[in-house]
């Protein structure tokens, strides 16, 4: 259970780790927009290089990053298959019954796959380099304008940070309960899908019971310390922009400009 690499903090002291979460979040959004603007091979290459540089700078081992791709490989595969068969332009390469494969389809499918992979890697790079708590702090700060339309930004942020905070506790709990049931002869890894789902009941029920218990206890502990979600709350660790944030922002801006120029065909030659 502990091997879930997707969305896990990887401690290190790189520039990306030290950067302000807001910078990273905005850069992430800009990058995603850029990925969807891509059409030429050159722009894909640009996206890839930008991501690769970010990964190298982050000092997160490539192995962990590849693991996060592995987690969504299935989704990528499905997308590729659907696109290969449904996108029917260009010359037909192969056809059988209702299935036809065209070169246009192949190209489109591989572009979709690359987009998906870029999306996953870029978002997991953010979670690899930012602790969940900092991330919600950043999100809360970015969403502050929504307070004007009476959106409960702080409440949502605290709900999110509690949820994130409990993910490791739950994986630990699942580990423990699974072990206890395995010791009583439960088997989780054979049989068909229905059998497996049924085999999970002895894990899920105690998990839910303990989740409710924990929620209750946490609510009580927060009450006991007079928690209330008013506007006047201060932060122990305030977010501050630094020079590296400016640098990161500039790099992202240059990257976005490059993608837009590629899209509009400023280099008519390409």
């Amino acid at each position: 259970m502990r091997d879930v690499a997707f969305g896990q903090y990887y401690p290190s002291n790189s520039v990306l780790h030290k950067a302000d979460p807001r910078t990273k979040l905005i850069a992430g959004i800009v990058y995603i927009v850029a990925v969807f603007l891509c059409d030429s091979y050159w722009s894909y290459l640009a996206c890839f290089s930008f991501l690769l540089i970010a990964c190298l700078v982050s000092k997160v081992p490539l192995k962990s990053i590849l693991k996060s791709i592995k987690a969504v490989l299935f989704v990528v595969l499905i997308t590729v298959i659907i696109n290969v068969f449904c996108y029917k332009t260009g010359t037909v390469l192969w056809s059988w019954w209702i299935l036809t494969v065209t070169d246009g389809g192949l190209i489109f499918a591989s572009k979709m796959a690359m987009r998906l992979i870029f999306l996953v890697v870029s978002t997991s790079l953010i979670t690899f380099t930012t602790t969940p708590v900092t991330l919600t702090d950043g999100l809360e700060s970015l969403l502050t304008p929504l307070k004007w339309i009476k959106f409960p930004v702080h409440d949502v942020a605290i709900i999110m940070s509690i949820a994130l905070r409990f993910i490791p506790s739950f994986t630990e709990e699942i580990d423990k309960i699974m072990m206890a049931q395995k010791a009583r002869g439960a088997c989780f890894d054979n049989g068909n899908i229905f059998k497996r789902a049924k085999a999970l009941l002895p894990v899920l029920i105690p998990l839910f019971v303990s989740a409710f218990r924990r929620a209750d206890e946490l609510a009580m502990a927060m009450d006991a310390r007079c928690y209330n979600a008013t506007d006047k709350r201060t932060k122990m660790k305030r977010l501050k922009f630094a020079w590296r944030d400016l640098f990161l922002a500039l790099a992202t801006a240059v990257f976005l400009a490059l993608i837009i120029m590629l899209k509009c065909g400023f280099f008519g030659l390409l």
Binding site: R184, C187, P206
Partner: peptide, 24 residues
């Protein structure tokens, strides 16, 4: 295990106790 009461899951005590024997 430590705090084994968290492994109880079945509808009735009897069913829970039988979980092991049935699996074996």
């Amino acid at each position: 295990f430590q705090y084994p009461e968290y492994q109880l899951f079945a509808d009735t005590v009897e069913a829970d106790v039988k979980f092991g024997p049935v699996n074996f």
